[in-house]
Simulated assay, not measured.
Amino acid sequence: MDGLFLGLSGIDFGKKFRNNRDCAEYLYSIKWAGGYVCTVCGCTSGIKGRTSLHRRCSNCKYDESVTCNTLFHGVRMPLLKAFHLIFRTVCKKKGMSSVELATEVGVQQKTAWKFKLKIKNAMVQESQAKLQGDVQVDETLVGGYSEGCVGRSLEEKTAVLIAVEDIGGGKTGNIRMEVIESFKADIIGLGMDSMVATNAKIKTDEHKSYGKLKKEGRDIEMTKSEKGASLDQLHKQIMCFKLWLRGTHHKCKPSYLQTYIDEYVFRFNSRNARVSIFNSIIFKFMNAVPKIYVDLIVPCVQNT
């Protein structure tokens, strides 16, 4: 499709999208690029609707807007501001907090925060491929210092399972991260099943849960952690994620942690395709069903 926006330049973005109509026409070119299909009756014949940015079914006369049945559906802010929110969120290497976004775009912080949930929902769909080859797996705890809580206590913290592809030469392939309920073998096993391919060669530390999983027949190599040195690629990601969470977003509630995890995973796994990242998210918006606020929150275990 011609006319797609590719790039990370704010100046180029401003030239491409000058007003709400520019944004709507861009969505129009994406929505019906493969031909018109009525969402009510399935008819493939449509004519101009009540505006040039609507299509009307020739059969049932249903008039559909360019944002109908997409993640843009029901968004009350102008499309131009929505586009700016998406561009600033996904094209900046480390992203932006909702407070910064609200200030730059000129909306309320709560509006920016809720719209970011839609963006993160689109990001989730691109982070689901299972990891292949040599994969390092470990767990970590996310949360501040808790006085009196020692070791793997989940009283004030949240457990996260992380897996990374080790492609050799000190380089990391894709990563996956998932909030887990506990460090029990069956819970970790379910997390590994959802993130790592069955034919992958898994390397872990000597935690007893991995010993149980190995006895069950999984291809697991257990090694001494050596303070993280034996799983160096993985522990680099743990450190980078925690620094990103504190540095960019400062804090997050445990119930929203998975949404931040998905954002970080998307950013890392898309690092080699950043010039097309904005357009990728717009496509996801246009091909996702509308969701209300409560449905945008990724289910996340709360350890209380």
Results as ranks from 00 to 15, higher is better:
residue 75 V to N: 10
residue 162 I to V: 14
residue 115 F to H: 02
residue 282 I to C: 07
residue 149 C to T: 08
residue 292 I to Y: 15
residue 184 K to S: 10
residue 25 E to P: 01
residue 284 K to C: 06
residue 195 M to D: 09
residue 61 K to T: 06
residue 125 Q to V: 11
residue 145 Y to W: 09
residue 200 A to F: 01
residue 99 V to L: 14
residue 146 S to E: 09
residue 259 T to N: 15
residue 54 H to R: 12
residue 93 K to G: 04
residue 38 C to P: 00
residue 32 W to I: 06
residue 231 L to W: 00
residue 164 V to K: 03
residue 192 M to C: 02
residue 281 I to M: 08
residue 170 G to I: 10
residue 201 K to P: 08
residue 205 D to E: 03
residue 63 D to G: 05
residue 21 R to L: 15
residue 101 L to R: 00
residue 109 Q to T: 03
residue 39 T to C: 06
residue 48 K to M: 13
residue 109 Q to F: 04
residue 271 R to C: 09
residue 180 I to Q: 00
residue 217 G to M: 08
residue 22 D to V: 07
residue 263 E to I: 01
residue 40 V to F: 09
residue 76 R to K: 15
residue 99 V to W: 13
residue 207 H to G: 11
residue 109 Q to S: 04
residue 38 C to Q: 00
residue 222 M to W: 00
residue 33 A to L: 09
residue 202 I to Y: 04
residue 38 C to A: 03
residue 244 W to K: 07
residue 152 R to M: 14
residue 21 R to M: 13
residue 151 G to C: 08
residue 152 R to W: 12
residue 137 V to Q: 01
residue 131 L to W: 05
residue 176 R to A: 07
residue 2 D to N: 11
residue 100 E to P: 07
residue 73 H to V: 05
residue 266 F to H: 10
residue 275 V to G: 08
residue 217 G to T: 01
residue 133 G to V: 04
residue 25 E to G: 03
residue 83 F to S: 00
residue 221 E to S: 15
residue 223 T to D: 12
residue 254 P to E: 12
residue 227 K to W: 06
residue 272 N to S: 10
residue 145 Y to L: 11
residue 169 G to E: 15
residue 208 K to D: 12
residue 89 T to Y: 09
residue 207 H to L: 08
residue 102 A to Q: 12
residue 189 G to Y: 03
residue 108 Q to E: 13
residue 128 Q to K: 15
residue 303 N to S: 09
residue 125 Q to A: 13
residue 56 R to D: 09
residue 8 L to D: 11
residue 138 D to V: 00
residue 54 H to K: 06
residue 129 A to P: 06
residue 235 H to Y: 14
residue 111 T to E: 02
residue 147 E to I: 07
residue 209 S to K: 03
residue 292 I to P: 05
residue 78 P to Q: 04
residue 27 L to V: 04
residue 185 A to G: 01
residue 91 C to V: 02
residue 124 V to L: 14
residue 122 A to Q: 06
residue 21 R to T: 12
residue 263 E to T: 01
residue 189 G to L: 07
residue 175 I to E: 01
residue 114 K to T: 13
residue 285 F to W: 01
residue 10 G to E: 14
residue 272 N to E: 13
residue 234 L to Y: 03
residue 270 S to V: 05
residue 229 A to Y: 14
residue 270 S to Y: 13
residue 207 H to P: 03
residue 122 A to P: 04
residue 255 S to K: 09
residue 228 G to L: 05
residue 38 C to M: 02
residue 19 N to D: 15
residue 266 F to K: 12
residue 2 D to I: 12
residue 220 I to E: 12
residue 179 V to C: 09
residue 173 G to F: 08
residue 233 Q to P: 05
residue 79 L to Y: 15
residue 99 V to D: 12
residue 100 E to W: 11
residue 251 K to N: 14
residue 160 V to C: 08
residue 267 R to N: 05
residue 174 N to F: 06
residue 295 D to C: 04
residue 272 N to Y: 12
